[in-house]
């Protein structure tokens, strides 16, 4: 059974400067045990998309009618859009769905010990005594490779190093045995050698716990190493999605191609770095038609700036939304 089904998710923010479209008609599904990468630059709407699953977006977020987020927890089907009060949302937040954030220092309370925070959420979500909760927490800390776990359990976040804090964050997120884990740039603030360790750890844990993961990152290398499938976002829209192998080996959308070219390639140090020309437009001045046409090398005047391209199949389990690709396929 499909774990998560997001359909036509459209989200706007009401701001002083007007309505900003952050997520535009986004659809994807996630199976249990599957890792999906959500890639995009800052402002692409990847975090907002993930946060809407837990309804964590600020008050001024307006979900367009027709947006659908469905979660399958056990035999129960939960419609996340219908959850209104924070009491309703307890099933989702921290229970069936857990989240890991980018900056572990900012997501732990500084004046409460790691242990107390881990126990608190277990008491909220699980039918456990305090003793059971402490034991499970220490066990989880050990599972994620923290040495001397009973001592760390009693320490504060500032006493842990960056890599250890992120491990503790993962331990905490997994202790309620969620069905879905949302990891928002979990390795971005870490050093490369620590990042490699955390990526390994997450892969092990997926294999063991079998939950679905949405892995948000801007780093295509991290996606290639962790995810089964990937969705590339630009200005609130998914412009390409499919199996990781397909998307990274044969990127179809000009933006995905540009992103891959912009990455430094260690195999060929002489290859010039090719930036994607131009800057991301401000969300207040969202381009009409295809959102990428202002920076696209193959944009067609009169078409790309007027009509919105639809998702179409370009290979086994591989879709993209681009008129140029469409024409090419028609011609061949």
């Amino acid at each position: 059974m499909t774990l998560l089904n997001v359909e036509n998710l459209t989200l706007e923010f009401d701001t002083d400067e007007g309505r900003i479209t952050a997520v535009d008609n986004v659809s994807f599904t996630l199976e249990p045990g599957e890792v999906m990468g959500l890639v995009g630059e800052s402002g692409s709407g990847k975090s907002v998309t993930a946060k809407s699953i837990m309804k964590l977006n600020p008050e001024n977020a307006v979900y367009a009618p027709g947006s659908k987020i469905e979660l399958a927890i056990g035999n129960e089907q939960i419609d996340a859009m219908s959850l209104k009060t924070s009491r309703d949302m307890k099933v989702v937040r921290g229970g069936a769905v857990s989240m890991i954030f980018q900056e572990p220092m900012a997501s732990f309370a500084p004046a409460i010990t790691i242990g107390d925070q881990m126990v608190e959420q277990l008491l909220l979500h699980k039918n456990m005594t305090k003793k059971e909760a402490s034991n499970l927490s220490v066990e989880m800390l050990e599972r994620v490779g923290i040495s001397d776990a009973p001592k760390r359990f009693k320490q504060y976040a500032f006493e842990l190093s960056g890599g250890m804090r992120q491990r503790a964050m993962i331990a905490m997120a997994l202790s309620t045995s969620p069905k879905l884990l949302i990891a928002d740039e979990p390795t971005t603030a870490l050093d490369v050698t620590i990042q490699a360790q955390v990526i390994d750890l997450m892969k092990d844990l997926v294999a063991e716990f079998g939950m679905g993961i949405i892995f948000i990152t801007h780093d295509l290398g991290v996606i290639a190493q962790t995810a089964d499938k990937v969705a590339v976002m630009y200005l609130g829209r998914i412009i390409e999605q499919g199996l990781v192998r397909e998307v990274i080996r044969t990127p179809a959308h000009p933006y995905t191609q540009g992103l891959l070219h912009a990455l430094p390639n260690l195999e060929d140090l002489d290859a010039p770095l090719t930036p994607v020309p131009g800057d991301i437009p401000s969300p207040l001045e969202r381009p009409r038609g295809c959102v990428f046409h202002t920076r696209c090398p193959v944009a067609m005047a009169g078409r790309c700036d007027a009509e919105v391209p639809q998702m179409q199949n370009v290979g086994p389990d591989h879709w993209t939304a681009c008129f140029a690709v469409e024409d090419q396929r028609m011609a061949s």
């Binding site: 490369v192 990781v244 192998r245």
Partner: peptide, 13 residues
């Protein structure tokens, strides 16, 4: 050097 995530999905771990 070896900790840089490779872009090759078949070159994992």
């Amino acid at each position: 050097m070896s900790a840089i995530p490779s872009l090759d999905p078949d070159n994992r771990g």
